[in-house]
């Protein structure tokens, strides 16, 4: 049974506060704080890296590099700019996309990622599993509601690190249309998912 909205909001707020506390501990050079932060986010971040790269070995390297960056640059985190979880996502995404560009494997990764997801690693079980599953289902629903062409440009930008101009060139769609589709997709998702992050703003 899904948790009530108020309960979910409380859980998200508490989780965000705990993330910030852990990052403070990391700044104070306490390895156990990094270990806890890793346990909270490694599953999601590995899935993200794997979605970009389509190679589990490379993705695990990216995951390790991302957490090393967190350890070495925790004091650069700016709470006014993003939540901790968003900062982790952006670090992992940037590293994965840098690796993708350096290996020039953009064309074969999307299908490989689909295959990889189907073949390997069950999702981790834990106390937060049910909550995460519920949130994942909702996100999938919202993404599924986007028109296919809007979802396509959003995923090309986010998971393949392509600029609006690159997407226009790759899809032979006018640049203005790519921009309009991207903006419409972001607006719709923001409206649908606002409850997931409004307490962080």
């Amino acid at each position: 049974m899904p948790a009530p909205d108020a309960t979910r909001a409380r859980e998200r707020k508490a989780a965000a506060a705990e993330d910030r506390r852990l990052l403070g501990e990391i700044v104070a050079r306490r390895p156990e704080a990094l270990s806890t932060l890793y346990d909270r986010y490694a599953g999601m971040l590995l899935a993200l890296a794997n979605r970009v790269l389509g190679d589990l070995g490379d993705s695990e390297e990216i995951l390790q590099e991302a957490f090393l960056q967190v350890w070495n640059q925790a004091e650069r985190y700016d709470a006014t700019r993003s939540s901790v979880s968003t900062w982790l996502v952006l670090i992992t995404r940037s590293r994965a996309i840098d690796r993708l560009r350096s290996r020039r494997v953009a064309e074969r990764t999307v299908h490989a990622a689909e295959k990889e997801r189907a073949q390997t690693h069950a999702s981790p079980e834990g106390p937060a599993h049910v909550f995460n599953q519920e949130r994942r289902d909702r996100l999938e629903d919202e993404l599924g509601r986007l028109p296919a062409e809007q979802r396509q440009v959003l995923e090309m930008a986010f998971y393949r690190g392509m600029t609006q101009s690159e997407i226009a060139e790759a899809t032979s769609i006018p640049l203005g249309t790519v921009k309009t589709r991207t903006l419409l997709a972001i607006r719709k998702l923001r409206r649908a998912l606002r409850a997931d992050f409004e307490e962080l703003l």
Binding site: Y38, G43, Q64, T86, P124, R136, F197
Partner: peptide, 26 residues
């Protein structure tokens, strides 16, 4: 809000469990 929205996209992916050696090395 737009950045927080985009950062939610990976949460729609099925989580993957990294091998234990990744955390050990880290």
């Amino acid at each position: 809000a737009a950045v927080e929205t985009l950062a939610l996209l990976p949460r729609a992916l099925e989580e993957l469990a990294p091998g234990p050696e990744v955390k050990r090395r880290l």
